[in-house]
């Protein structure tokens, strides 16, 4: 009888330990989650941020000749105050006609390197892996899988304005 009593005591002990260990794991997990959520939220927040819709003036209508492609420099949509020169970005702006502009992203659609415009050859060439694009942004040669991406452009009174957009991820 004494052994039986001892036995059930032991069983009770085990279930008590089981309970305590499970409880500790659950409590610890709740604590980790509670502390982790703000950290994860902070780090992933940039994914949810929508860029504000802004238009940057890149020049006067009279600055651009029809049929020409030139580099224009403007500021990102919402740079952080301590960005310095990194806040700047560029596009290749082509005046197709009197009232039509196309702004090509400078990023090659292969892996994002900045393409150069060769005005006399009327080609964009990429310095990284040899991608080439025609003046209308379509792929001329090399590894790029897609034409150059474009930015929204508008003419506002006598100003040409570009809407800064996210880096094109192809």
């Amino acid at each position: 009888m004494s052994t039986e009593h001892h036995h059930s005591d032991n069983e009770q002990q085990i279930s008590r330990r089981q309970f305590l260990s499970r409880m500790s794991i659950v409590l610890g997990s709740i604590g980790a989650a509670a502390a982790g959520i703000p950290v994860i939220g902070f780090i992933f927040e940039p994914l949810l941020r929508k860029p504000p819709e802004v238009w940057r003036t890149v020049g006067l209508l009279s600055d651009f000749a029809v049929g020409q492609t030139v580099k224009v420099v403007f500021e990102d949509a919402s740079p952080l105050p301590w960005s310095g020169v990194t806040a700047k970005t560029a596009a290749w702006l082509r005046r197709e006609s009197d009232d039509k502009f196309t702004a090509y992203a400078i990023n090659c659609t292969h892996l994002g390197c900045p393409v150069n415009w060769l005005p006399k050859a009327t080609l964009f060439m990429c310095p990284c892996h040899g991608g080439v694009f025609y003046k209308d942004g379509s792929v001329a040669a090399g590894p790029p899988p897609k034409p150059l991406q474009t930015y929204p452009v508008r003419i506002s009174a006598d100003k040409v304005q570009i809407q800064p957009s996210p880096i094109p991820i192809t």
Binding site: P51, A87, H110, L111, I169
Partner: peptide
Amino acid sequence: AEQAGRTPWIGGAIARFIIGGNTVGA
């Protein structure tokens, strides 16, 4: 970031996660 961006479905999100936003910046 462009390389990470080639991941199916979530590539764009990973690329933005790496550069911490929509453009390379601060």
